Simulated scan of single mutants.
Amino acid sequence: MGKARATSDDPFKGYRVKGKFKLRDFDPEATPFARGDEAAQRTRLDALATELDALQDRLHAGGERKLLLVLQGMDTSGKDGTIRWVFSKTSPLGVRVAAFKAPTEEERARDFLWRCHAVVPRAGELMVWNRSHYEDVLVPPVNGWIDKDETTRRCEQINAFESLLTDTGTQIVKCFLHISPDEQKKRLQARVDDPAKHWKFSMGDLEVRKQWPQYMRAYERALAATSSAAAPWYVIPANDKLHRNLMIAELLVRTLQNMKLAPPQANSALAGLRVE
Protein backbone atom coordinates (compact mmCIF):
# COMPACT_ATOMS: atom_id res chain seq x y z
CA MET A 1 0.00 0.00 0.00
CA GLY A 2 1.34 3.40 -0.95
CA LYS A 3 2.03 6.18 1.52
CA ALA A 4 -0.15 9.23 2.02
CA ARG A 5 1.03 12.12 -0.12
CA ALA A 6 -0.74 15.10 1.50
CA THR A 7 1.40 17.80 3.11
CA SER A 8 0.53 20.27 5.85
CA ASP A 9 1.16 23.42 3.81
CA ASP A 10 -0.73 22.22 0.73
CA PRO A 11 -2.63 18.96 1.23
CA PHE A 12 -3.10 18.60 -2.55
CA LYS A 13 0.52 19.12 -3.52
CA GLY A 14 1.39 15.43 -3.48
CA TYR A 15 -1.56 14.63 -5.74
CA ARG A 16 -0.94 17.31 -8.37
CA VAL A 17 0.61 15.99 -11.59
CA LYS A 18 3.86 17.67 -12.57
CA GLY A 19 5.71 16.13 -15.46
CA LYS A 20 6.22 12.42 -16.01
CA PHE A 21 4.87 10.13 -13.31
CA LYS A 22 3.62 6.60 -12.70
CA LEU A 23 0.13 5.86 -11.46
CA ARG A 24 1.50 2.95 -9.45
CA ASP A 25 3.09 5.56 -7.17
CA PHE A 26 -0.41 6.73 -6.17
CA ASP A 27 -2.32 4.43 -3.83
CA PRO A 28 -6.01 4.24 -4.82
CA GLU A 29 -6.78 3.05 -1.26
CA ALA A 30 -5.27 6.16 0.36
CA THR A 31 -7.55 8.38 2.46
CA PRO A 32 -5.39 11.38 3.43
CA PHE A 33 -8.38 13.70 3.87
CA ALA A 34 -10.32 11.38 6.17
CA ARG A 35 -10.88 12.75 9.68
CA GLY A 36 -12.70 10.71 12.30
CA ASP A 37 -15.25 7.96 11.69
CA GLU A 38 -17.64 7.65 8.76
CA ALA A 39 -20.32 9.74 10.46
CA ALA A 40 -17.83 12.56 11.03
CA GLN A 41 -16.72 12.41 7.41
CA ARG A 42 -20.31 12.57 6.16
CA THR A 43 -20.94 15.57 8.38
CA ARG A 44 -17.84 17.23 6.95
CA LEU A 45 -18.93 16.47 3.39
CA ASP A 46 -22.30 18.09 4.11
CA ALA A 47 -20.51 21.18 5.46
CA LEU A 48 -18.26 21.37 2.40
CA ALA A 49 -21.26 20.96 0.09
CA THR A 50 -23.01 23.81 1.89
CA GLU A 51 -19.93 26.01 1.64
CA LEU A 52 -19.60 25.12 -2.03
CA ASP A 53 -23.17 26.28 -2.57
CA ALA A 54 -22.40 29.66 -0.98
CA LEU A 55 -19.25 30.08 -3.06
CA GLN A 56 -21.06 29.04 -6.22
CA ASP A 57 -23.71 31.69 -5.51
CA ARG A 58 -20.96 34.27 -5.33
CA LEU A 59 -19.46 32.99 -8.58
CA HIS A 60 -22.89 33.05 -10.25
CA ALA A 61 -23.65 36.60 -9.12
CA GLY A 62 -20.21 38.04 -9.56
CA GLY A 63 -19.71 38.51 -13.28
CA GLU A 64 -17.31 37.01 -15.81
CA ARG A 65 -15.43 34.35 -13.83
CA LYS A 66 -16.12 30.65 -14.51
CA LEU A 67 -15.05 27.27 -13.16
CA LEU A 68 -14.67 24.05 -15.14
CA LEU A 69 -14.31 20.72 -13.32
CA VAL A 70 -13.14 17.84 -15.52
CA LEU A 71 -13.73 14.30 -14.22
CA GLN A 72 -11.92 11.40 -15.89
CA GLY A 73 -11.48 7.80 -14.81
CA MET A 74 -11.99 4.18 -15.74
CA ASP A 75 -15.48 2.68 -15.72
CA THR A 76 -16.98 2.59 -12.18
CA SER A 77 -14.44 5.12 -10.84
CA GLY A 78 -17.32 7.26 -9.60
CA LYS A 79 -17.81 10.24 -11.88
CA ASP A 80 -21.60 10.17 -11.48
CA GLY A 81 -21.37 9.60 -7.73
CA THR A 82 -18.95 12.48 -7.32
CA ILE A 83 -21.34 14.86 -9.06
CA ARG A 84 -24.32 13.55 -7.07
CA TRP A 85 -22.74 14.03 -3.64
CA VAL A 86 -20.31 16.93 -4.03
CA PHE A 87 -23.06 19.13 -5.51
CA SER A 88 -25.86 17.73 -3.33
CA LYS A 89 -26.57 21.13 -1.78
CA THR A 90 -25.71 23.36 -4.72
CA SER A 91 -28.30 25.45 -6.53
CA PRO A 92 -28.87 24.26 -10.10
CA LEU A 93 -28.96 27.88 -11.27
CA GLY A 94 -25.21 28.11 -11.72
CA VAL A 95 -24.10 24.48 -12.08
CA ARG A 96 -24.31 22.57 -15.36
CA VAL A 97 -23.13 19.04 -16.24
CA ALA A 98 -22.10 17.73 -19.66
CA ALA A 99 -21.51 14.02 -20.25
CA PHE A 100 -19.19 13.02 -23.09
CA LYS A 101 -20.15 9.77 -24.81
CA ALA A 102 -18.61 8.19 -27.89
CA PRO A 103 -18.57 10.83 -30.66
CA THR A 104 -21.61 10.94 -32.91
CA GLU A 105 -21.36 10.94 -36.70
CA GLU A 106 -21.93 14.70 -36.61
CA GLU A 107 -19.07 15.15 -34.14
CA ARG A 108 -16.68 12.82 -35.96
CA ALA A 109 -17.13 14.95 -39.10
CA ARG A 110 -15.39 17.84 -37.30
CA ASP A 111 -12.23 18.38 -35.25
CA PHE A 112 -12.21 16.54 -31.94
CA LEU A 113 -12.56 19.73 -29.88
CA TRP A 114 -15.62 21.00 -31.77
CA ARG A 115 -18.11 19.44 -29.37
CA CYS A 116 -16.29 20.90 -26.37
CA HIS A 117 -16.73 24.54 -27.37
CA ALA A 118 -20.51 24.22 -27.17
CA VAL A 119 -20.41 23.25 -23.48
CA VAL A 120 -17.71 25.46 -21.97
CA PRO A 121 -18.94 27.32 -18.88
CA ARG A 122 -20.80 30.57 -19.32
CA ALA A 123 -19.99 33.65 -17.26
CA GLY A 124 -20.70 32.98 -13.59
CA GLU A 125 -21.16 29.25 -14.18
CA LEU A 126 -19.66 26.17 -12.58
CA MET A 127 -19.46 23.53 -15.30
CA VAL A 128 -18.75 19.82 -14.75
CA TRP A 129 -17.57 17.55 -17.54
CA ASN A 130 -18.29 13.85 -16.98
CA ARG A 131 -15.52 12.53 -19.21
CA SER A 132 -14.22 15.11 -21.64
CA HIS A 133 -11.98 15.97 -24.57
CA TYR A 134 -9.40 13.69 -22.95
CA GLU A 135 -11.30 10.68 -24.28
CA ASP A 136 -9.75 11.63 -27.63
CA VAL A 137 -6.19 11.08 -26.35
CA LEU A 138 -7.08 7.89 -24.47
CA VAL A 139 -9.43 5.66 -26.46
CA PRO A 140 -7.98 6.21 -29.97
CA PRO A 141 -4.32 5.55 -29.08
CA VAL A 142 -5.16 2.52 -26.93
CA ASN A 143 -7.11 1.03 -29.83
CA GLY A 144 -4.52 1.99 -32.44
CA TRP A 145 -6.78 4.44 -34.26
CA ILE A 146 -4.21 7.24 -34.05
CA ASP A 147 -0.43 7.05 -33.73
CA LYS A 148 1.96 8.60 -31.20
CA ASP A 149 2.55 11.72 -33.29
CA GLU A 150 -1.16 12.42 -33.63
CA THR A 151 -1.65 11.85 -29.91
CA THR A 152 1.10 14.38 -29.19
CA ARG A 153 -0.50 16.89 -31.56
CA ARG A 154 -3.86 16.45 -29.85
CA CYS A 155 -2.32 17.02 -26.41
CA GLU A 156 -0.74 20.23 -27.70
CA GLN A 157 -4.11 21.30 -29.13
CA ILE A 158 -5.76 20.55 -25.77
CA ASN A 159 -3.19 22.74 -24.03
CA ALA A 160 -3.90 25.57 -26.46
CA PHE A 161 -7.66 25.13 -26.00
CA GLU A 162 -7.36 25.21 -22.22
CA SER A 163 -5.09 28.25 -22.40
CA LEU A 164 -7.82 30.01 -24.37
CA LEU A 165 -10.30 29.19 -21.61
CA THR A 166 -8.06 30.27 -18.74
CA ASP A 167 -7.06 33.47 -20.58
CA THR A 168 -10.74 34.37 -20.84
CA GLY A 169 -11.63 33.87 -17.18
CA THR A 170 -12.15 30.13 -16.71
CA GLN A 171 -10.51 28.37 -13.78
CA ILE A 172 -9.92 24.71 -14.69
CA VAL A 173 -9.61 21.81 -12.24
CA LYS A 174 -9.02 18.32 -13.66
CA CYS A 175 -9.42 15.18 -11.53
CA PHE A 176 -8.43 11.64 -12.45
CA LEU A 177 -10.46 9.26 -10.26
CA HIS A 178 -7.93 6.54 -9.49
CA ILE A 179 -9.32 3.10 -8.65
CA SER A 180 -7.62 -0.29 -8.59
CA PRO A 181 -8.55 -3.12 -10.98
CA ASP A 182 -9.72 -5.19 -7.99
CA GLU A 183 -12.09 -2.40 -6.91
CA GLN A 184 -13.42 -2.09 -10.43
CA LYS A 185 -14.05 -5.84 -10.47
CA LYS A 186 -16.18 -5.55 -7.32
CA ARG A 187 -18.18 -2.61 -8.68
CA LEU A 188 -18.80 -4.24 -12.06
CA GLN A 189 -19.91 -7.45 -10.36
CA ALA A 190 -22.30 -5.46 -8.16
CA ARG A 191 -23.90 -4.08 -11.30
CA VAL A 192 -24.28 -7.56 -12.75
CA ASP A 193 -25.75 -8.98 -9.54
CA ASP A 194 -28.33 -6.23 -9.01
CA PRO A 195 -31.05 -6.04 -11.71
CA ALA A 196 -31.70 -2.42 -10.69
CA LYS A 197 -28.14 -1.61 -11.80
CA HIS A 198 -28.14 -3.51 -15.10
CA TRP A 199 -28.68 -0.25 -16.99
CA LYS A 200 -25.23 0.84 -15.79
CA PHE A 201 -23.52 -2.24 -17.20
CA SER A 202 -22.26 -2.73 -20.74
CA MET A 203 -20.53 -5.78 -22.16
CA GLY A 204 -18.06 -3.31 -23.64
CA ASP A 205 -16.91 -2.54 -20.09
CA LEU A 206 -15.37 -6.02 -19.93
CA GLU A 207 -13.45 -5.47 -23.16
CA VAL A 208 -12.08 -2.15 -21.89
CA ARG A 209 -11.14 -3.83 -18.61
CA LYS A 210 -8.87 -6.22 -20.54
CA GLN A 211 -6.94 -3.14 -21.71
CA TRP A 212 -6.28 -1.84 -18.19
CA PRO A 213 -2.44 -1.64 -18.53
CA GLN A 214 -2.72 0.16 -21.86
CA TYR A 215 -5.17 2.67 -20.41
CA MET A 216 -2.95 3.33 -17.40
CA ARG A 217 -0.04 4.14 -19.72
CA ALA A 218 -2.29 6.32 -21.88
CA TYR A 219 -3.47 8.22 -18.80
CA GLU A 220 0.10 8.70 -17.58
CA ARG A 221 1.15 10.19 -20.91
CA ALA A 222 -1.94 12.36 -21.36
CA LEU A 223 -1.98 13.75 -17.81
CA ALA A 224 1.75 14.47 -17.83
CA ALA A 225 1.49 16.28 -21.18
CA THR A 226 -1.49 18.45 -20.20
CA SER A 227 -1.09 19.31 -16.51
CA SER A 228 -0.18 22.98 -16.20
CA ALA A 229 -0.14 25.63 -13.50
CA ALA A 230 -3.33 27.13 -14.91
CA ALA A 231 -5.08 23.80 -15.58
CA PRO A 232 -3.59 21.19 -13.24
CA TRP A 233 -4.40 17.50 -13.04
CA TYR A 234 -4.99 15.87 -9.65
CA VAL A 235 -4.89 12.12 -9.02
CA ILE A 236 -7.77 11.40 -6.62
CA PRO A 237 -7.64 8.08 -4.71
CA ALA A 238 -11.12 6.71 -5.44
CA ASN A 239 -11.44 3.22 -3.97
CA ASP A 240 -13.15 4.82 -0.97
CA LYS A 241 -16.21 6.63 -2.37
CA LEU A 242 -16.78 8.88 0.63
CA HIS A 243 -13.15 9.97 0.73
CA ARG A 244 -13.17 10.62 -3.02
CA ASN A 245 -16.12 12.97 -2.58
CA LEU A 246 -14.52 14.69 0.43
CA MET A 247 -11.27 15.30 -1.43
CA ILE A 248 -12.92 16.76 -4.51
CA ALA A 249 -15.31 18.91 -2.46
CA GLU A 250 -12.37 20.28 -0.49
CA LEU A 251 -10.41 20.93 -3.68
CA LEU A 252 -13.31 22.87 -5.21
CA VAL A 253 -13.92 24.91 -2.06
CA ARG A 254 -10.22 25.83 -1.88
CA THR A 255 -10.17 26.70 -5.58
CA LEU A 256 -13.17 29.00 -5.30
CA GLN A 257 -11.78 30.61 -2.15
CA ASN A 258 -8.48 31.26 -3.94
CA MET A 259 -10.37 32.94 -6.78
CA LYS A 260 -11.21 35.67 -4.21
CA LEU A 261 -14.67 36.20 -5.57
CA ALA A 262 -16.14 39.54 -4.48
CA PRO A 263 -19.71 39.60 -3.22
CA PRO A 264 -22.16 41.22 -5.64
CA GLN A 265 -22.47 44.97 -5.28
CA ALA A 266 -25.55 46.35 -3.60
CA ASN A 267 -28.14 47.98 -5.86
CA SER A 268 -28.43 51.60 -4.76
CA ALA A 269 -31.89 51.77 -6.30
CA LEU A 270 -33.12 49.42 -3.58
CA ALA A 271 -31.96 51.62 -0.70
CA GLY A 272 -34.92 52.37 1.56
CA LEU A 273 -37.35 50.33 -0.51
CA ARG A 274 -40.24 48.85 1.47
CA VAL A 275 -42.24 45.97 0.12
CA GLU A 276 -45.98 46.52 0.80
Rank of each mutant, 00 (worst) to 15 (best):
Q189R: 14
S227D: 11
E107F: 12
G36N: 08
K210G: 08
V208W: 00
L242R: 07
K197A: 08
R154T: 05
V139R: 04
A34V: 14
L165N: 08
Q211A: 11
A231V: 13
V235A: 04
R221I: 09
F87Q: 07
L206C: 00
K241N: 05
I83Y: 10
R209M: 12
V142N: 03
A99Q: 12
V17C: 03
E29P: 01
V235L: 14
L242S: 07
V97N: 15
Q265G: 13
M247N: 07
R221G: 08
A160G: 06
E64L: 06
P103A: 05
K20D: 13
K18D: 13
L165W: 10
R244C: 06
L223S: 04
P140A: 10
I236L: 06
K174P: 03
M203L: 05
D136A: 05
S91I: 04
L177H: 12
A54E: 14
E150N: 03
Q41N: 15
R254K: 14
T76Q: 00
D193G: 08
V86L: 09
V253F: 11
Q265A: 13
V192C: 00
L126Q: 10
S163Q: 15
E107P: 03
R122Q: 13
A269S: 10
A102L: 06
E135I: 03
R209D: 09
I83W: 04
L165K: 07
H178L: 03
P232T: 05
E105N: 12
A269G: 10
A249W: 08
N267L: 01
T82K: 00
S77T: 12
P237D: 02
A34E: 14
V139T: 08
R16V: 09
A39H: 08
N245W: 03
F87L: 14
R122T: 14
G2D: 02
M1S: 12
D205G: 00
Y219D: 10
T76F: 04
Q171I: 02
Y219I: 13
P121L: 07
G272I: 04
M203I: 01
A196L: 10
I158N: 06
Q72M: 13
T168M: 02
D167L: 13
E135W: 08
L67R: 02
D25R: 06
K241E: 08
V275L: 14
Q56C: 01
H198F: 07
S202E: 09
L251K: 09
Q265N: 05
T31S: 01
L261K: 12
T168P: 05
T255R: 07
D53Y: 04
E220H: 03
E51F: 00
E207A: 14
P121K: 13
G169K: 06
D194T: 04
D194G: 01
S163G: 14
R110P: 05
L59N: 09
L55D: 01
E125V: 00
R24E: 15
R274Q: 10
H60T: 11
K79Y: 08
R153S: 11
K13A: 15
K174M: 10
N258D: 15
W145N: 05
H243F: 11
D136T: 01
Q157E: 14
M1A: 08
E250I: 00
R153D: 13
E162I: 11
F33S: 09
K66D: 08
T50N: 13
L113M: 14
Q184S: 02
R16W: 03
K186A: 10
L177T: 11
G272E: 03
